[in-house]
C-alpha cells in the first residue's frame, strides 16, 4: 500500500470476503457477476456537482523554495526517473518530467517580481482533450484533466496544443513505480491534482501540504462549486486571474496578485 493508504487492508479483506460469496453465485450465473460486485457497495464515482480547483497566492510564494515541486516529484514517483547515462544536463532538463514548475516573472512595466508554481490549469474546455485522437486525454466529471495511460499512444499532440506547456512525455523506461501513480515510457502525463488522494477522500494535494509545511500556505485546493469551501470564499474576496484568460478556457487554477 502506498504511504497514503487508499485501500486499507481490512477493507479489502472484507471486500474479498464479500466477493467470494458473489463469485460463488457467479459460477452459476457468470453474466451477473459484475452487477453483483457493484451491489456490494462500490462508490458511485466522481460527480460534476464538484469542480476541483486551486488558488495560488503569488504573494506568499517564495522565490527559491521548491517544496511543491519536490513534493510532487515524490508523490507521483517522478523522481524514479534518473538522468540516463551519458546524457547532458541540458538534454535531461528538457526531457525530465515536471508536473509543476517554479517560474519567476518580472512585469515589463513596473518591474514587479512574481513567483509562482505553474502546472496543469485544469481547464473547463481543455485544448489537450480536444486534440487527443484516442480520447486518452480527458476531463473527469469533477473537473480534473488527466491522461488515461491505457489509451495514450504517445503522439504528443496534446503537448502541442496545451497553452501552458503543462505536459511532459516520458522519454525513458521507468521502474519501481508507486502503486498510486503508475507511469511508463512513451505516454504523456501531467498534474492530476493528486487524483489518487482525492479518490481516497483526502482533500489536499501533495504540493499544497508541502507549501503549508514550509509555512508559506500559498496553495489552496478545494471545490470551486461549493460556496462554503475555503477556495470559493477567497475567490469571492480577492481578485484573482486565470493565466491566458483571453483563451476563455475557464481554468481551474487561479492566481492572486499576479
Amino acid at each position: 500500500m502506498g504511504k497514503h493508504n487508499d485501500q486499507p487492508d481490512g477493507k479489502r479483506r472484507q471486500f474479498i470476503g464479500g466477493t467470494i460469496l458473489a463469485a460463488g453465485a457467479a459460477t452459476v450465473a457468470p453474466g451477473i457477476l459484475l452487477t453483483v460486485a457493484q451491489a456490494t457497495g462500490e462508490s458511485q464515482g466522481v460527480s460534476s456537482d464538484v469542480r476541483y480547483g486551486m488558488l495560488i497566492d503569488t504573494d506568499k510564494c517564495v522565490a527559491d523554495c521548491t517544496a511543491c515541486v519536490d513534493a510532487c516529484d515524490k508523490e507521483n514517483g517522478l523522481d524514479l526517473q534518473q538522468k540516463p547515462k551519458g546524457q547532458s544536463d541540458d538534454d535531461w532538463n528538457a526531457q525530465r518530467p515536471q508536473w509543476v514548475r517554479k517560474v519567476q516573472l518580472k512585469d515589463r512595466q513596473t518591474g514587479d517580481i512574481t513567483d509562482l508554481p505553474m502546472m496543469c490549469q485544469h481547464c473547463e474546455f481543455p485544448p489537450c482533450v480536444d486534440v487527443c485522437p484516442t480520447g486518452a486525454s480527458f476531463r473527469r466529471a469533477d473537473g480534473i484533466v488527466m491522461v488515461d495511460r491505457h489509451t495514450c499512444i504517445g503522439c504528443r499532440y496534446c503537448m502541442m496544443a496545451c497553452p501552458y506547456k503543462a505536459r511532459s512525455f516520458i522519454h525513458q523506461n521507468v521502474v519501481n513505480q508507486l502503486v498510486a501513480a503508475p507511469r511508463g515510457k512513451g505516454c504523456v502525463e501531467s498534474c492530476n491534482f493528486c487524483v489518487h488522494r482525492i479518490d481516497a477522500g483526502k482533500m489536499t494535494t501533495a504540493c499544497q501540504d508541502a507549501c503549508a509545511k514550509e509555512g508559506h500556505q500559498a496553495i489552496v485546493f478545494g471545490d470551486l462549486k461549493n460556496p462554503e469551501s475555503e477556495i470559493a470564499s477567497i475567490l469571492r474576496e480577492k481578485n484573482s486571474r486565470q493565466i491566458r484568460a483571453d483563451l476563455e478556457l475557464n481554468t481551474g487554477v487561479r492566481y492572486t496578485d499576479l
Partner: peptide, 22 residues
C-alpha cells in the same frame, strides 16, 4: 517560446519558459 504570461518577462524557470528551445 509560447507567450504564457503576456506583459511579463520570465526571469527564471526550470522548464525553459520564455527561452528559445534548442
Amino acid at each position: 517560446p509560447m507567450n504564457i504570461f503576456p506583459g511579463k518577462e520570465v526571469i527564471a524557470s526550470s522548464f525553459l519558459d520564455g527561452s528559445i528551445v534548442q
